[in-house]
Amino acid sequence: MNKERLFELYEKLYFHEMEVRERITGRVQITFALVATGYTILSYMLRMLDYTALRSAIMVFAISASLTFLLSFVCLYFLVRAFWGNTYKGMPSPIKTDEYREKLIAHKKEIEDYNSSYPSNRQPEVDVDSLVADHLYQKFRDCSAHNTEVNDRRSQQLHRAFKWLLFASIPMLVASVTYIAHDLDVSSPRKETPIVDLSVATELNGIKTKLEALNLSLKQGVKIVPEVEDNYVPPPPPPPQEPDARPLVEDNYPTPNAGE
């Protein structure tokens, strides 16, 4: 295989590894979502756990939930390693490549001037196209090799994370079956959920106390004097009565003329 065929191979391999990088990132995000979903389900079951249910069922659920959390932490460890801390090598930008080509052209002109000035110490001419092609060939080769190693390492970490996720799903399944089979949900419609309103309960207790005191006083013949609050302000007294005002009598007769 000649150099041109290898150049095409390394170029295809470089872009292939970049696509693999995106696929691995998507798989890691999906696994993170699965772990977060499991934590959400376990959090709900723990929050709504009925602690008055069968003690053995609660113990089985608690042990299974604890194992699920422990095994999922190992899964998260490998997921973090598969997601962060991985450095890829990329090809130089077109501007950098063009700057390198311009430098080669300037260097070629310098070599030509040197050879014309010192023909006895003639230097080999600079082939710009060949050097640029060699530069790109080496970059594609090095980047492809490095990115392949990184993707292989990330794939291995992702495989380990998914394996521990499967291990964590076993105790989670046991916890879920125990939770459903023994009806450990305190908000289950099959259970009576007591609703306590503290303000209403306080008012009812006060009314009950007053009724008991009233009943006791009626039995003993004691007159109940209503309790007066400390900040009680009596209403103002009624105003004094005043006599009716004398009605005004207006002179509605017409005024006679002066000549009459």
Rank of each mutant, 00 (worst) to 15 (best):
His159Met: 15
Lys219Trp: 06
Thr25Ile: 08
Gln220Thr: 15
Ser187Thr: 15
Val28Thr: 06
Phe61His: 02
Asp134Arg: 07
Leu9Met: 13
Leu34His: 10
Val233Ala: 05
Asp185Gln: 05
Thr31Phe: 05
Val150Cys: 07
Phe15Asp: 08
Gln138His: 11
His107Leu: 14
Leu184Trp: 01
Thr25Phe: 10
Pro119Ala: 05
Val200Glu: 12
Ala145Leu: 08
Arg55Val: 07
Lys12Pro: 02
Ser199Lys: 15
Asp134Leu: 12
Arg81Met: 15
Asn86Trp: 01
Asp230Phe: 14
Ser155Ile: 11
Val132Thr: 02
Glu192Ile: 15
His135Tyr: 15
Ala62Ser: 11
Leu104Ile: 02
Val177His: 05
Leu204Met: 08
Phe15Lys: 08
Gln138Ile: 07
Leu76Gly: 08
Pro237Asn: 09
Val132Leu: 02
Asn215Asp: 11
Gln241Phe: 14
Ala181Tyr: 07
Trp164Thr: 03
Tyr100Pro: 01
Tyr14Ala: 00
Leu70Gly: 14
Ala65Ser: 04
Thr25Gly: 08
Val222Leu: 06
Phe78Asp: 04
Val233Leu: 06
Leu9Pro: 02
Met18Ser: 02
Pro171Cys: 05
His159Ile: 15
Leu158Gly: 03
Ser93Asp: 08
Thr202Arg: 10
Glu250Gln: 13
Pro247Ile: 12
Pro124Met: 02
Ile58Asp: 00
Asn86Leu: 01
Glu17His: 04
Glu192Cys: 14
Thr178Gly: 05
Val132Ile: 09
Arg190Gly: 09
Lys3Asp: 12
Asn151Ile: 03
Ile58Cys: 02
Gln123Trp: 12
Asp134Met: 10
Gln29Gly: 07
Leu49Asn: 11
Arg55Met: 05
Ile24Phe: 03
Leu13Pro: 00
Lys163Ile: 07
Val126Ala: 01
Phe15Arg: 07
Ser56Val: 11
Glu102Gln: 10
His146Cys: 09
Arg23Glu: 09
Phe162Gln: 15
Phe7Glu: 10
Val126Cys: 03
Arg122Glu: 08
Val249Ala: 06
Pro240His: 14
Gln156Ile: 13
Arg190Pro: 02
Tyr77Leu: 04
Thr40His: 09
Phe7Pro: 05
Leu13Ser: 02
Leu214Phe: 09
Val200Gly: 08
Gln220Tyr: 13
Pro171Lys: 02
Lys109Ser: 13
Phe162Cys: 13
Arg55Phe: 08
Pro237Phe: 09
Ile105Tyr: 15
Leu6Tyr: 12
Val80Leu: 06
Tyr118Phe: 15
Leu42Asp: 06
Asn115Pro: 03
Met45Leu: 10
Thr68Gln: 00
Phe15Val: 06
Ser144Ile: 01
His159Gln: 15
Leu248His: 05
Ala36Trp: 04
Tyr137Phe: 11
Ala213Met: 09
Tyr253Met: 13
Ala201Pro: 06
Phe162His: 14
Met18Gly: 03
Thr255Glu: 05
His182Phe: 07
Thr31Tyr: 03
Lys191His: 06
Ile30Ala: 14
Ile224Thr: 09
Glu19Tyr: 04
